[in-house]
Design a protein around this nucleic acid. Structure first.
Ligand SMILES: [Zn+2]
Ligand SMILES: [Zn+2]
Ligand SMILES: [Zn+2]
Ligand SMILES: [Zn+2]
Lengths: 130, 130
DNA sequence: AACCAAATTGCAACAATGTTGCGATATTAT
DNA sequence: ATAATATCGCAACATTGTTGCAATTTGGTT
């Protein structure tokens, strides 16, 4: 099996995730470690982190792609079925770990994954709007 | 106010939507009318159709952007709060007009819009899998 | 039918985001 | 220390979408 290695660049990316409360785009991450590694390396690190279930990929309503740390719970099988909030003002994307949609599907569909993203104003921007 | 005009290219795009049961990407549309108009024109037509609530824009789990005709119902105010299904095999995106998620949000968020996309196998691909 | 203002188009150029191939380098296990 | 291979840097390419501007087309008016 492929073993995964710890490199300077990977550590730097993980540190950035550690500090951030919101999801981050490739560009946002790369800007913080331009001097550490190449642009392509960041793409490849993100791919690996997603594969290893360390971060998950989020696509918001506009198609912007961001990544956020996974919060591992009791369950062994790790499914990202929580919702995400995309603020129209500050453009930040936040995991809503406790928001899970319920829904009824027609027959004959096999659902493997869901993406539930809400957009609007986050608490910060809502307050500063008053 | 800006009046919107009927052009050859716009008519061609609308005809394509009329024939399709699934959502279409810019590329898919452009391939069918390369000889009618420019690539940029298709982008601009799609923008206008979205603005006029004639089609709606869908972003699937991978970030692919597609467009589908709006089905206008009784309501005057037109909100696209239905779900979409993205097939992992045939890559088609279908509107699930009757699937609407219910959910409970934390306080202090103002929700303006939602994106609920499910992925897996569509009825066609599920059958041909057996 | 001719005219006119404004909406639409084509083209070329640009920007952002992501991918690929390959030789060089760094990491990990032995 | 060594060897196998995972990772990296670089350059090149692909896709998707945007912008400015001059030329054309459209829909309404005379
Ligand atoms: Zn905000
Ligand atoms: Zn999340
Ligand atoms: Zn399918
Ligand atoms: Zn739809």
């Amino acid at each position: 099996m492929k073993t995964t290695r710890n490199t300077t660049a990977k550590t730097a990316v993980l540190e950035i995730f550690g500090k951030s409360k919101t999801a981050l785009s490739h560009t946002e991450i790369y800007k913080q470690i331009e001097d550490v590694c190449d642009r392509v390396t960041v793409y490849r690190i993100l791919d690996r982190l997603v594969n290893d279930d360390i971060v998950h990929k989020i696509v918001d309503l506009d198609g912007t792609v961001k990544y956020a740390k996974c919060h591992h719970h009791a369950q062994r099988v790790h499914i990202h079925n929580h919702a995400h909030f995309s603020c129209e003002k500050c453009l930040e994307i936040t995991c809503l770990e406790n928001v899970k949609p319920s829904y009824i599907m027609p027959h004959n569909y096999k659902v493997n994954n869901i993406n539930f993203t809400l957009s609007g104003l986050c608490p910060n921007c809502l307050n500063s709007n008053i």
